[in-house]
């Protein structure tokens, strides 16, 4: 058995107290929001903390609700909560579907969106999808709230850009209009995905693509987009379909792929093309 080293648990009543605790404990403390990744890393001695600040006790952080033109997903919402949320299923079904396939049923019951994003594990499903959906993170610090794009939040592998006293409170995801088509696909061999690919297309009345956002995850330190790919993905549907391979190559270039145990850079490059074709077919209803 691999025991966890000793630490103290703190349960702030509100975000202000949480921010103060984070500030106070500095490098010896960290937020605890579900533990499905943090506790594994601590068990393997990859991380050591003397203080865990349990943010889940803070009221209201687990809400999933419609707010203006956004779907607000609280950082404390578990994968399961999001998967089961009626409002998420109705307004952003791609998010529910993605969450239904994160890890396994036990991880989904305890792991939270906030924990997942802040831990910044490169194989995160939610991070990749939220990047494509243009989600905005809300961070609350001692001096107030600030908004960060997913790109800004995810600073690197296992690294977020929150200040010492900041807490991620939730994510705002713009509600898709009737002309938006979204897909999230992943390919997995081991316990974590080898590649995740999220595609979000804005169609015009004729079914052509007005705007595209596409993100790939798992194959670079943080999920990434490619401007070149997205411009190739916009335009008349038929011509976009001709350019999918080129767009996939642009994404692969952007990701600066490397060989690892999940697969060679060459294989990942190939799979980006496969998943992009499949996602495009799904978005454009080409699967029949």
């Amino acid at each position: 058995m691999m025991p966890l080293r000793r630490f103290a648990i703190h349960r702030p009543a509100d975000l202000g107290e949480a921010a103060e605790m984070l500030d106070h404990y500095g490098d010896t403390g960290t937020l605890y929001a579900g533990g499905t990744e943090l506790l594994l890393a601590m068990r393997h001695d990859l991380l050591r903390y003397e203080h865990l600040i349990d943010i889940k006790a803070v009221a209201g952080l687990d809400r999933v609700e419609r707010r203006d033109g956004h779907l607000y997903i609280g950082a404390g919402a578990t994968h399961r909560t999001i998967e089961r949320s009626a409002v998420c299923r109705e307004l952003l079904p791609v998010m529910s579907e993605m969450e239904a396939n994160v890890a396994n049923v036990r991880v989904r019951a305890t792991g939270t969106l906030g924990g997942n994003l802040c831990f910044a594990e490169p194989h995160s499903d939610p991070a990749t999808l939220l990047l494509a959906l243009d989600g905005t993170a809300r961070a609350q610090g001692k001096s107030g709230e600030r908004m960060l794009s997913m790109d800004e939040l995810l600073a690197g592998a296992y690294e977020n850009s929150l200040a010492q006293d900041e807490v991620l409170t939730g994510v705002d995801v713009p509600l898709p209009g009737p002309s938006q088509r979204n897909a999230y696909l992943k390919f997995q061999v081991h316990e974590r995905p080898l590649l995740g690919l999220a595609l979000s297309l804005e169609l015009d009345d004729g079914g052509d693509i007005r705007e595209a956002r596409c993100a790939i995850g798992c194959v670079s330190p943080t999920p990434c987009r490619s401007e070149a790919a997205e411009s190739l993905l916009a335009g008349p549907a038929d011509s976009v379909e001709q350019r999918l391979q080129e767009a996939a190559a642009a994404l692969a270039d952007e990701a600066a792929l490397t060989d690892d145990r999940e697969g060679s850079a060459e294989y990942k490059r190939h799979l980006i093309g496969v998943l992009l074709h499949r996602a495009a077919r799904k978005c454009l209803n080409r699967d029949g």
């Binding site: 648990i9 499905t36 506790l39 305890t110």
Partner: peptide, 29 residues
């Protein structure tokens, strides 16, 4: 107790009717 990385499920118990990995679920919770 088997894998200790939330993969195998041997330690599954139900907390408020939901399955959790008791090997990685802090008792105080």
């Amino acid at each position: 107790i088997s894998c200790e990385v939330q993969v195998c499920g041997a330690c599954t118990v139900l907390v408020d009717a939901l399955p959790v990995s008791s090997c990685t679920y802090l008792a105080y919770e």
